[in-house]
């Protein structure tokens, strides 16, 4: 018990929260960009432009089938060789965005696929252009169905930021490791804190998504 009291000293908690802030910062930025890019890629794959769509599809498949850890490593350590040098936070965001965009593209594609083809035809026959029909008719319906898998993917994203400890991103898990690395008695309290903080972060995300879902369904 004494270990818990000592471990949760103000100093250590402040240190953990600074790590949590980096986790949140990296997660939110990556969620924003991967949602944007993932949607665009998903549409690019759906519309079946010759050659282009299959190329996009192949690249998405490549990224989806690689461990994120490898992509993180590659972004931080290998890209400098071809002149792209990123600090640790931008590198983490870029790696997460690249990986999660590929995962989301697949979700978006199957979401659009699930919208009955008649919807598009009806919209077109009412005089909407393809782009208008896509943006005004198809995508809103698709997104409603996609919310649960997208949210799971975002929860994965938040969890996966912990992998960036390998490139020394000063996020939550890394800060906890520093604390218990300096005093092994703090190991259990730190793991408990990690579990609680990640749970809170992800649960907030789930609840937020539920609220959005409810609003969409009432609209």
């Amino acid at each position: 018990m004494q270990n818990f009291i000592d471990a949760y000293s103000q100093v250590n908690l402040a240190f953990l929260l600074r790590g949590l802030w980096v986790t949140v910062e990296v997660s939110v930025t990556s969620i924003f960009f991967s949602f944007l890019i993932g949607t665009l890629l998903g549409i690019a794959r759906y519309v079946k432009v010759r050659f282009f769509s299959s190329l996009v599809g192949f690249l998405i498949d490549l990224l989806r089938n690689l461990p994120l850890l490898l992509i993180l490593f590659f972004t931080y350590f290998a890209l400098p060789k071809i002149g792209i040098r990123l600090g640790v936070i931008p590198a983490s965001i870029v790696a997460m965005t690249v990986f999660e965009s590929a995962m989301l593209a697949e979700i978006v594609r199957s979401g659009i696929n699930a919208v009955p083809i008649g919807q598009m035809e009806a919209a077109r026959s009412n005089g909407l252009s393809y782009a208008q029909a896509m943006i005004q008719i198809i995508l809103p319906q698709a997104f409603k169905k996609m919310i649960p898998p997208i949210v799971s993917q975002f929860i994965s994203l938040v969890k996966d930021t912990s992998l960036a400890t390998i490139i020394l991103l000063p996020e939550l898990t890394y800060h906890a490791q520093i604390v218990y690395g300096q005093n092994a008695n703090y190991a259990i309290p730190m793991f408990v804190a990690l579990a609680v903080l990640y749970f809170i972060a992800n649960y907030t995300l789930s609840i937020g998504a539920r609220l959005i879902n409810r609003r969409l369904n009432h609209a």
């Binding site: 969890k159 996966d160 912990s162 992998l163 092994a184 190991a187 259990i188 793991f191 990640y198 992800n202």
Partner: peptide, 21 residues
């Protein structure tokens, strides 16, 4: 719900660090 919301790395490290202690 618990396991889904905790990173794999944290679970693994817990088994590597705490369980052997």
């Amino acid at each position: 719900e618990l396991i889904r919301n905790i990173p794999l790395l944290v679970i693994t490290m817990a088994f590597f660090v705490i369980v052997p202690m």
